[in-house]
Amino acid sequence: MSLTEYTGRKRVRIGALALVVLIVGGAGLTVRSGIALDRLFTAGFATRSVEMATPIALAAIGGLYAEKSGVFNIGLEGFMIFGAFSAAASMYALGGTSPTQGQVWLAVAVSAVISTLITVAFAVLLIRYEADQIVAGLAVWFIGLGFAPFTAAIIWGSRSSPGLASVNSVAFGQSPFVILTVLIVLASWVVLYRTRYGYWVQAAGENPEALDTAGVDVTRVRYATVIFSGAMAGLGGAVLLAHAGNFVGIGDTMVEGRGWIGIVAYLFGNYNPIGAAGAALLFGALDMLNVQFQTVGIEVSARLVNLLPYVAVIIVLSAWGKTRMPSSVGESYESED
């Protein structure tokens, strides 16, 4: 018991340390440039950070469920690309280059359904055919990187879409998807820790045999979580698109590593949905810091500031490496019967 207590405390300390470093670093920069902190950390910055964090948080929630149940879904990035692209494509199909708000919503919903269907196939390969989880997950990313721009080129004659429409904000200048995400985060916390399904998910990842002898079908639990993870990542991609208003398919596409950051977000959040969402917020803020620096006129290369989240991930992961993975992750489970 001292061991868990120790790592728990260590974790909190490192987390606090990371935050302090970031704040002090930010403050240092600000003071050197003679710019007051209140101009850097504005309400607009907060809004944009939350908006930036939303897709990451959604992917993280999905990935967290899959991994909790013992399946490492490393393909989140790929599913986000599918989600973003299919949202753009359905928006274009519904309303051309000037879709209405209703069509934006419908497109996001259609996109979530499409991502779910793709994930079903992925889940069958992973669970039924015992695919190597890491290699298959990478493949999903490659497939997304290839086929999304490919189809975009077929539809629009270019890897990126023309300007479509982004979702209108509702209360407090916030996107409705931000509110939806908050609800999803809370709901997934409740399901994971307060319902029998959550118990089963946790047991499937930690000791599938115990769950099996308790009369619950481990395979079914894992199917559910993997499909959920793809659906959430797809929704994350769709939300990203609904915020941006057009699809970008050059380079690493508009998803640009957010799925990977999502994985780190839930590791950082120690598999707790609320923690993961908090971590996503941190990464979202780091992402937006760049814009903020430019607005207040701090001369830092945009490219370097963009790297901050990645550097943070490596530091966090190394200092925090002992994040406790569910013990049966990556092992396929076959029941005795």
Partner: peptide, 11 residues
């Protein structure tokens, strides 16, 4: 579109 090749590689 040439991106098809990347997709095939993914497959």
């Amino acid at each position: 579109p040439v991106q098809l090749i990347d997709g095939i590689v993914g497959l």
